[in-house]
C-alpha cells in the first residue's frame, strides 16, 4: 500500500495522469484511422492509374 489513494493530491495527480494517457491513446487511434482512410484512398487512385 502506497497510501496514495488516501492522499487527495496524489489521487488527483493519478487521475490526471490516467486521463492524459487515455487522451493520448485516443488521439493516436484517431490518427491511425484517418491515416488508413487516406492510405486506402491513395491506393485506389494509384491502382486505377496503373490499370488504365
Amino acid at each position: 500500500m502506497s497510501g496514495a489513494e488516501h492522499d487527495p493530491v496524489a489521487r488527483k495527480q493519478a487521475d490526471e495522469e490516467f486521463a492524459a494517457k487515455r487522451r493520448g491513446r485516443n488521439w493516436a487511434l484517431l490518427a491511425v484511422l484517418v491515416a488508413m482512410v487516406v492510405l486506402f484512398y491513395l491506393i485506389t487512385i494509384a491502382r486505377i492509374g496503373v490499370n488504365t
Partner: peptide, 8 residues
C-alpha cells in the same frame, strides 16, 4: 486506476 493504461 487498477487497470494499467498504456500510452501510444
Amino acid at each position: 486506476r487498477a487497470v494499467p493504461v498504456a500510452d501510444w
